[in-house]
Design a protein around this nucleic acid. Structure first.
Lengths: 220, 220, 220, 220
DNA sequence: TATGAATGAGATTTCATTCAT
DNA sequence: CATGAATGAAATCTCATTCAT
């Protein structure tokens, strides 16, 4: 490697780092802004002001407003893609408990990205078809960890369902509902009790009768 | 009643009819528009074009764009307020079957107002606080028929749950999900099988073990 | 005169009467409306509502909104054209006292048409050149009675001025000012004391020194 | 001061200068536009076209159309607030001559802002209550220099009046009249002779009889 | 790389005017 | 003669995007 190549390499790395740093800075600003102003009124001007950069700069890192929106949404999905497997790292072997751990992690991520989650429902209209498809795909991928535990549970005879897909999606909906209907749920519950209640309800529908005693703690 | 009064009366009636006709025409156009354009591009221009009237005319029947949006959303809630009690008219006495009938009606209404339902999630941001509150109230009212059947079922020892509110809301979410995630669910299901599956799943979580046999048809 | 002609004649007269009645009704409504809403917001719709007729009907008696505006303004000028000569009917022979009587009548008419007077200043922009000219002419005509008294006073050696035109116009301005700056003048004065003060001030500038004693009452 | 700070400082100064430049450019364009179009058609489109900028840019410097209107009006009042004291700098000590100098300056400013002055009468309706109040206050302040000279003249026994406020306001009206009724006055007079005539007329009403000889030049 | 002034298309809303009844 | 529903041009304002510096 020549000296020039080394410098070039270092420069490119630095540039990539800066780019990542900027993206994060902007995404965080977007989250902060939505938290404060309510996930509406996310104009490029407002975003620039919140991030402490110029509007022009945003266009250096994102091609369009749609790009920013997309990135914010993907950010939640990325967080889920990271958090769900991580939650399983120190979870027990038991598929039902793994399912519980996954659902808990799901809800926790949604809670910390409440406004971005709303954005998924509100603004995905302004995304083009391709991106909308990609988001759907990513969302489906977040269902996989739930589905895996479910299927394992069924294989082991712990759970009973002939439609794991539907169950998984219902669980996802329950998690999303925490963001979508927080005005309702937070009136009488905090996140922990919401998770417990929903989990109990869902599990009661699928835990095999003869194993219910074993999960008494989860079924309330 | 003099002749003049009769005419006056007739005219006023005609005018009221026209007003209702126009409102309906506009609301239907809004629904159609969202159906075709994907619930984006709900501009007053587009709405006027779709309804085949002028922009100005919309403002004779609705005070603002917000008014139109609100009316579209309330329309769904009104349909629910009408359909849910109606569904119970020729439902059996059994609370569990009444619950099933209510949920079925709920899903059916949502299905026929799929795009308006999406609007509730997408555009309620552009509604002022008062209207947003009113919509929440109306939505909660749609939970009442579900809740009533649930509580009756619990009183009769047919159902077991200590959180009827949560169960009711989960059922509503499942109904809404048919609109929100139709891109996913319609891939492998039609409305009827969606209703059956969700109902089976939900009921399995709450039907008292000793009465499960009685509802074998509902629990699949 | 044939019978047909008689009927025709009677009909035409009735029609003319109706037309006059309608015009008056509308002009009065306009005045009332401006009084209440502040001489802005005089839309044809609002005018129709205030007059208790339909918008369409206004167009039967006035060709356009401009016509209505013009008629309202001319109404004030007509009132002046009637009131000023009338005020001189039972005024003394003395030119100075006739001047005082004319000014008093001028101010009184302006006071009772305060909002229409404002309209002259505010909306004459939206009148076409021809009408604007006509209004100027009519306004100049309202200056004539003042001018006549002034000139008579000068002939009789009671008044001293070589620019009766300017004095007359200043008096008109003082009268208009009661409408234009009522927010200021009404704070400390009523119409009568306003007239007295302005008259005293104006007369002190033009009454011949040797006749001042004679008008001590007017000069305060 | 570091180099960066210097640059920063310079940039901010440049920006302030640009902002002032733009405001002036827009205010001047507004005046020009009204001059040409007769103070009607002051639409944001027209203003932008006249100023040679885009509509959007106007909103960077003024929050609303009302803001622009207000600024144009305040511009005249500012010009008066500057010009009236300045006129007294090289005026003689004599209160009557100072009064004359102030009135002359007042009329001169009005003459050079004729169209903006009309705007005060025509468009103040479209200003909100707060701004309307502020304009009234500023207008009253322009009366102060006149009032001061008047009171000084009364103290010195040169002028006689028990209502300096009214006299001052009449002088202001006379100045405004040059803009309001220029169609009439400019037919036979130029600004200078208008000022002389009005001043002579006003002073004749208030100069103490025994001092009239001293101001023969002003009283004609 | 970074700025932010400038653009202009597009959105909502008003209201004078028309015309079928 | 009278109505008022319907029209649509025009006005104000916003905001994603560009570009000269």
């Amino acid at each position: 490697m020549t000296q020039a190549e080394t410098i070039d390499h270092a420069q490119r790395a630095a540039r990539r780092t800066l780019a990542e740093h900027r993206s994060r800075q902007l995404l965080d600003a977007a989250a902060r802004l939505m938290e404060r102003e309510g996930s509406e009124a996310v104009s490029m001007q407002a975003l620039a002001a919140e991030a402490g950069v110029s509007v022009g700069l945003i266009y250096r890192y994102f091609g369009s407003k749609e790009d920013v929106l997309y990135a914010v949404i993907v950010d939640v999905l990325d967080a889920l893609a990271t958090a769900l497997p991580a939650a399983l790292d120190d979870a027990p072997e038991d598929p039902v408990r793994r399912l519980a751990a996954t659902f808990t992690a799901y809800c926790t991520v949604i809670d910390s990205h409440r406004h971005s989650t709303l954005l998924t429902y509100r603004e995905s209209k302004s995304l083009d078809a391709k991106r909308r498809e990609r988001i759907k795909e990513l969302e489906l991928e977040t269902a996989q960890p739930l589905m895996r535990s479910l299927r394992d549970g069924v294989s082991d005879g712990l759970l009973v369902t002939d439609d794991a897909e539907l169950v998984a999606y219902d669980l996802i909906l329950m998690a999303h509902a925490w963001a979508l209907k927080s005005w309702y749920f937070t009136k009488t519950r905090d996140l922990t009790s919401y998770i417990d209640s929903q989990l109990a309800l869902a599990l009661r529908g699928i835990v095999a009768p003869k194993h219910r005693a074993r999960y008494a703690d989860l079924l309330r």
